[in-house]
Nucleic acid binder design. Structure first.
Length: 438
RNA sequence: GUGGUUGUAGCUCAGUUGGUUAGAGCAUCGGUUUGUGGUACCGAGGGUCGUCGGUUCGAGACCGAUCUUCCACCCCA
C-alpha cells in the first residue's frame, strides 16, 4: 500500500470519533440556541489583507497563505519575487472574519447582533498535545452593545456548556485589559502594554526573575520593573485595585471585573476567578478577557474577551463586541482522557435485516420502510453474503436486533427476531417488534 | 520560528556487539459450521523496516539530510 498521510497537524475522524465530535458540537450549539444566538457561516478563506495585522506579529506568522496560481505564479517565479502568495489566506480564527462580516452587512443586521459560528480554522503552528493545524472553533459573540450583561451571559453560557458535557470542575479565569492598561500607566510604561501583559502572563509558569528578565529585554526601564514588585508578591484583587488606584482606566477595569464576577455569582455561576496574570496575546481585546481551564488539561479549552475597536479597523466605529470561543478539539481530547463520552453516542442501527437473496430482500425492504417510518434506525444488508459474515457485521456494529427473513418468515409474515445480547430468537410481527423496541 | 524526541504489518510492539528468506499479539480474510455473531481450533494475505543519500564485503540497526509524531519554548482553541 502506498504511504498515505494527512498533512501535518490534520487528522481523519473515524465514525465513532466523528459521532463524538458531533455530540460536542450539538451540545454547544444547543446552549447557544437557548440564549437566542443565530448561526452564521463565513468562507474558509479571507482576503489576506482582512487577516493580516489583527493578531500581532506572532499571529501573522501563523496565517496559512494560499499560493498564487497560473500566470500570476509564473510571473512571480520568473521575476524572482519572494511573495508568491495570492490575495487569499485561510482564516486564522472566527472573530476577525466576523468583524468583517458585521461591517460588510451592517445594514442587513439588527443590533445588538448575537451570532454563533462553528467552523474550522487553520494555523501554521507546530503541532503538539491539544494543538492542531486544523481545528474547530465554536464562537459565540454579541456585537453592538457595551453592557456588561453580555459578559455575564457569556459566563453563564460557559458554565452551561461544561455542565452539559459533564465537566463542571472547570475554572473561568477572568481579567480585564483595562486593569493591565492601568498597571502599565502606573509604572510609567503605557506604550508597552502588550509586552508587559505577555510577560506577566508567564508569572506562574517561569517565576518572577524570568519575567523581570523578559521585561528588561523588551526595553522596559528597571525603575518601572521595580514598581511592579508589589504585584509579584501579592496578586489578589485588593492589592491590584490598590496598585492601579491612581489610574482612571485601571479603576474602571476593576469595577467592571467585580461587576461581572458578582453578577455571575448571583446567577449561580461560581466558577469565575480573577487572574491578574491572564493576558492573552490577541491584540484586539480591550475589556474583559476570559480563559477556561481544566486542572487536568495543559492548555485552555475556551477563551475570549471584549473588543471595542475590531470593526473600526474595517471602517465601522463605536461598535463594541464581546465573545468567547470553545476549542472543540481540545474539549474532545479532554473528554476522551476522562472517559466522559456518553455510551450511547454514535449508536448505529437498531435493526439489521439479514439478506437471504433478492426475493427475500424485497420483503426486508418493505418491513424496513415500516420500521423507519416510526423512527427505528434500520439497515438491510446489501448482499446475500454468508450468514456468518452478516451476523458478524451486526455484532461489530453493536446492532441489538437482527431480523431473519426466509421462506418461512415470508409465508407467516413474521420475521425471526434475534436479540444479539441474549442470543434468544423468536418469530414476531413487525407491529409487535415496534412495540417491543419502543 | 528555536531546542529536543519518535518512526519496523491496519494497530501495539519484539528484532542480541551491523551477518542468510524481518517476527509476535491483536485486527482483517477464509475454513471447521451452505439459516446464526460474540468463545475455540486450523489456515491465509499483508512490510522496498518513513524517505533519500552515505559508511561497509554486508545496514532494520551506524552517519547525514528530509518528512512525520510527540514534548518544551513562542504563541494559542
Amino acid at each position: 500500500m502506498a504511504k498515505l498521510n494527512t498533512p501535518k497537524g490534520t487528522r481523519d475522524f473515524l465514525p465513532q470519533q466523528a459521532a463524538r465530535r458531533n455530540y460536542i458540537f450539538d451540545t454547544i450549539r444547543g446552549v447557544f440556541d437557548t440564549y437566542g444566538f443565530a448561526p452564521i457561516e463565513t468562507p474558509a478563506m479571507e482576503l489576506t489583507e482582512t487577516l493580516m495585522g489583527k493578531y500581532g506579529e506572532e499571529g501573522d506568522r501563523l496565517i496559512f497563505k494560499i499560493l498564487a496560481r497560473g500566470e500570476k505564479l509564473k510571473k512571480a517565479v520568473e521575476n524572482n519575487k519572494v511573495e508568491q502568495s495570492s490575495e487569499e489566506a485561510l482564516r486564522y480564527d472566527l472573530t476577525v472574519p466576523f468583524a468583517r462580516f458585521v461591517v460588510q452587512h451592517q445594514n442587513e443586521l439588527s443590533f445588538p447582533f448575537k451570532r454563533y459560528q462553528i467552523q474550522p480554522v487553520w494555523r501554521a503552528d507546530r503541532p503538539q498535545k491539544g494543538r492542531y493545524r486544523e481545528f474547530y472553533q465554536c464562537d459565540v459573540d454579541m456585537i453592538g452593545s457595551n453592557s456588561l450583561l453580555n459578559e455575564v451571559e457569556l459566563t453563564q453560557i460557559i458554565a452551561d456548556v461544561f455542565e452539559k458535557l459533564g465537566l463542571p470542575d472547570i475554572a473561568i479565569k477572568i481579567n480585564n485589559r483595562k486593569i493591565l492598561q492601568g498597571i502599565a500607566e502606573v509604572i510609567g510604561e503605557p506604550e508597552k502594554l502588550i509586552d508587559i501583559t505577555v510577560a506577566l502572563d508567564k508569572l506562574d509558569k517561569i517565576g518572577r526573575e524570568k519575567v523581570e528578565e523578559e521585561l528588561v529585554t523588551k526595553g522596559i526601564s528597571t525603575e518601572a520593573i521595580s514598581k511592579l514588585g508589589v504585584l509579584f508578591e501579592n496578586v489578589s484583587l485588593e492589592s491590584v485595585s490598590e496598585f492601579v488606584s491612581s489610574s482612571e482606566v485601571g479603576l474602571k477595569g476593576i469595577e467592571e471585573l467585580k461587576n461581572v464576577i458578582s453578577s455571575s455569582e448571583k446567577l449561580g455561576v461560581t466558577i469565575c476567578e480573577f487572574d491578574p496574570t491572564l493576558a492573552r496575546g490577541l491584540n484586539y481585546y480591550t475589556g474583559a478577557i476570559f480563559e477556561v481551564v481544566h486542572p487536568e488539561f495543559p492548555s485552555s479549552i475556551c477563551g475570549g474577551g471584549r473588543y471595542d475597536d475590531l470593526t473600526g479597523i474595517f471602517g465601522l466605529k463605536d461598535v463594541s463586541g464581546v465573545g468567547v470561543s470553545f476549542g472543540a478539539d481540545r474539549i474532545y481530547d479532554l473528554l476522551l482522557d476522562k472517559e466522559l463520552f456518553p455510551a450511547q453516542v454514535g449508536l448505529s442501527a437498531q435493526v439489521l435485516f439479514v439478506n437471504f437473496g433478492n426475493k427475500e430482500a424485497v420483503q426486508c425492504q418493505l418491513w424496513a420502510k415500516e420500521l423507519r417510518s416510526v423512527g427505528i434506525r434500520t439497515e438491510v444488508y446489501p448482499d446475500s453474503a454468508k450468514m456468518k459474515k452478516q451476523m458478524k457485521y451486526a455484532n461489530d456494529k453493536s446492532i441489538p436486533y437482527v431480523l431473519l427473513v426466509g421462506d418461512r418468515e415470508i409465508e407467516a409474515q413474521e420475521p425471526t427476531v434475534k436479540n444479539m445480547e441474549t442470543g434468544d430468537q423468536n418469530a414476531m410481527s413487525i407491529d409487535a417488534l415496534i412495540k417491543h423496541i419502543q
